[in-house]
Design a protein around this nucleic acid. Sequence first.
DNA 1: TTGAAAGCGCTAACAG
DNA 2: CTGTTAGCGCTTTCAA
Lengths: 337, 337
Amino acid sequence: MADDGKRVRTFEVAALANSSPSTVSRALAGDKRISEATRERVLAAARELNYQPNLIARSLKNASTGIVGVVVTDLDNLYHSHTLKLLIDEMGDQGMAPLVFACNRNDRAGAVIDRLTSYQVDAVIALAAPFDAEIVRICGASGKPLVLMNSYEGPTTINTVAGDSRAGGAMVAEHLVACGGQHFAFFGGEDSTRISRDRELGFCETLGSLGHRCDLRTSSIYAYDDARRAAAGLLEGRPDAVFCANDLLAFALMDCARLQFGRSIPGDLLVVGYDNTAIAAWPSYDLTSVDQCLEIMAAKTIATTRAMIDDPKREPTVMTVLPRLIPRNSTTVPGRL
Amino acid sequence: MADDGKRVRTFEVAALANSSPSTVSRALAGDKRISEATRERVLAAARELNYQPNLIARSLKNASTGIVGVVVTDLDNLYHSHTLKLLIDEMGDQGMAPLVFACNRNDRAGAVIDRLTSYQVDAVIALAAPFDAEIVRICGASGKPLVLMNSYEGPTTINTVAGDSRAGGAMVAEHLVACGGQHFAFFGGEDSTRISRDRELGFCETLGSLGHRCDLRTSSIYAYDDARRAAAGLLEGRPDAVFCANDLLAFALMDCARLQFGRSIPGDLLVVGYDNTAIAAWPSYDLTSVDQCLEIMAAKTIATTRAMIDDPKREPTVMTVLPRLIPRNSTTVPGRL
DNA sequence: TTGAAAGCGCTAACAG
DNA sequence: CTGTTAGCGCTTTCAA
């Protein structure tokens, strides 16, 4: 029964168990060299006093805190916030404690990482962050393993887990051709991002190898209104098959096509999105989309992080997760299948 | 220039500044009794070595870690993940470090809180958590301030920041009556939650005082498919004005009304949602919704947390934030306004 | 105004 | 198998 305020320390447990702090520490750590009898006594005492070890004190002695820093950008993006949720769940299961900092556009990434490392995190995971040399430098200098998840770009000297955007783009090309598309368009996210470029690249390459080409393209930032405007421009060109670099762009384009251009989907226009957001499955959109298999990516990210913590001089790995296309009504051509 | 791996300690800074660790500590803390000259020397040395204090070590001596535990449930709910984002941003600005744990339905809340308190967090914020006596007991026993944000229920002996659901329901009633509704329905979230009940209560009360009543009701869990099914049942009763306890329910109901019942919105049916999700503003839905002013709630939550940390024996406060109704096309009656 | 020394709670090396 | 001791990096008396 922990009484108000003060936490129970090893010392108190030791006193109750007629033993010493070190014995308590060992018994709780499962040290083999403790006799069954004393172990029992210690465990009983600990339970009775509701002893919870002070992890902060422990980590001052050990090298490791069990805390992993997570740097996130752009949590307004539903897809990113879902990724964070998966990471948090996975880390919780693995006994890691996520210390989460947002690094919004105007923050200096370096300052954020400095705060993180001040807390002696065991590693840093950067989520959907634009590649930032300063992060890499600081983590390198402080010897903290760094893992980039779904981040926009990075050399192979840094641990990276990302979806295979190029393969995803290729899948979409094959699918749209199979569905009878003739005039193809690409609707990209922010052009500077490697992810959007890779999706476009895979798309165009594969279209080419199938004897088609992508005549139209435009791009927009991640915001419905902007996307809507850009979509209008794209639709002027009268494409009949559009690949959108993410679901939000696809939703905006579908709304624009139906409400503003009076076109029916999939009758007049085939649309494919990316990320397989929950909303894609809603009947109003029923959007064919590429699923990045985020659960797998999150699991790999955590596994990589764990491996780097266990062996800091391990070679960095770059992992790629193959996405899969989820066909829905936005590309279902009545005559086919 | 911090070299590989090892962090710089006060000792090294002291050596470079021809001084002692204690002086370094004081200079960096801005202690008044340090001469201008030595302060300069110390700061210069610290900067030169890129000294970052070890916050873990510091907090072992001090009472406080600067870490605040955040317990979240149900991050799949877009509204909750957005709330978390706002909290993270606000805490970052305030110099708090959020240690985030998910407490999913099958986890024991107690275990999660125990892990949190093992890290000596300065306070715990429970976000959208079902009220759980165990959390309260453990936080109480360990003397950690607890703040519930938008949580489902709680006695007034606990710090709470929540939207005024009853007032929100009342606003909706007034609005729907003003828009000419005649046959009212309420579409609730999980019935056990106080929040949904309060929204309904405010709605029905105010309808009553305006000479109307709410004849129909149903409820659903937070999942599109379930909501869609429940909505179908509700629409059988042919209401012409529905208040949905959250936006997701409203979207499902709108889809159901249009696609399955062939009813037009707002022509045949007025719909109001709650939370003012980003999607509510999309043209396909263009949904009138109640905005909870989450930024304000997040700010108040952090302010309360800060106040409790600064003065742990402060009386708990219960705060309520007045929402505001955002009218959109789903309740725009052509003849009016 | 500054330095030396003690101690936060824990664990690990070193006796016994 | 177990207890004593030292020390993680910092802050803070206490002395000078």
